[in-house]
Nucleic acid binder design. Structure first.
Lengths: 119, 119
DNA sequence: TCCTTTAGTAACCTAAAGTATCCTAAACAT
DNA sequence: ATGTTTAGGATACTTTAGGTTACTAAAGGA
């Protein structure tokens, strides 16, 4: 049994699924893997996400200790997001997602150009 | 660029995220990894899911070629679900989810008993 | 003086996801 | 005769994720 602030899980897979139960969080992690990023950089790179959703998801990730938020006292504002230690440990998972996405597209779709590789 | 029936993706990670954009699909796969299962078995093992949601999610997974559905002509009905080849290739991904869930719980929660291991 | 930039917040709305409840067919056991 | 079992379908409802639009503060530049 797994307990995370009064929430019970039967299995550690369920823990992970519960943390990332939406369209955006893992995509954000993916973009933070190579470098820390400013808010506006994430907005540009994940262009389909709206500003509000991005702020909401970043807050959720921060609350779950997956990312770290650093505010610079300057104008216009500057806020930099980076992965925590546990956040960085998501890299193998995302690499598997990367690989499976390619396998799946090879079977049921078409690849015209590959996306960035993780180092 | 990745193309799957007229839907475009910038990155193969996005492809994977798009296939599994809900709470349930990967949990279902997880339970099908060790064995094919009947509908009622899945209902019992993933006890939090409702019957309707389970049927919907199984249909979606079948439509995406991740699982295979076999109907036996008998009464009461018997329907067995199993992973396709591409579905089986999700095992490493789920293993990473399994591992990360443990890491995360160790840091921010409590483990009282571990869930089943993948062979 | 006014515009631009950044990282948000607030109020409102919609579509989709999920829940709850009830119904069915047909074989079998009692 | 009746109840049980299985894999759903039908309908109606609630919840929540996410989108849309508009607003802000404060420094610096034209």
């Amino acid at each position: 049994m797994y307990l995370i602030n009064d929430k019970e899980f039967k299995c550690s897979v369920t823990v992970t699924l519960d943390v990332f139960n939406d369209r955006w969080k893992l995509a954000i992690i993916w973009h933070l893997l190579d470098n820390e990023k400013r808010f506006k950089d994430l907005r540009q790179e994940i262009s389909e996400i709206t500003q509000k959703t991005l702020t909401v998801k970043l807050k959720e990730l921060e609350a779950k200790n997956i990312i770290h938020r650093e505010v610079f006292a300057q104008v216009p504002p500057k806020v930099v997001y980076s992965l925590t230690n546990i956040g960085k440990k998501l890299e193998p998972l995302l690499q598997e997602m990367y690989k499976w996405g390619i396998d799946y597209t090879k079977e049921f779709g078409t690849i015209t150009a590959s996306c960035k590789n993780i180092k």
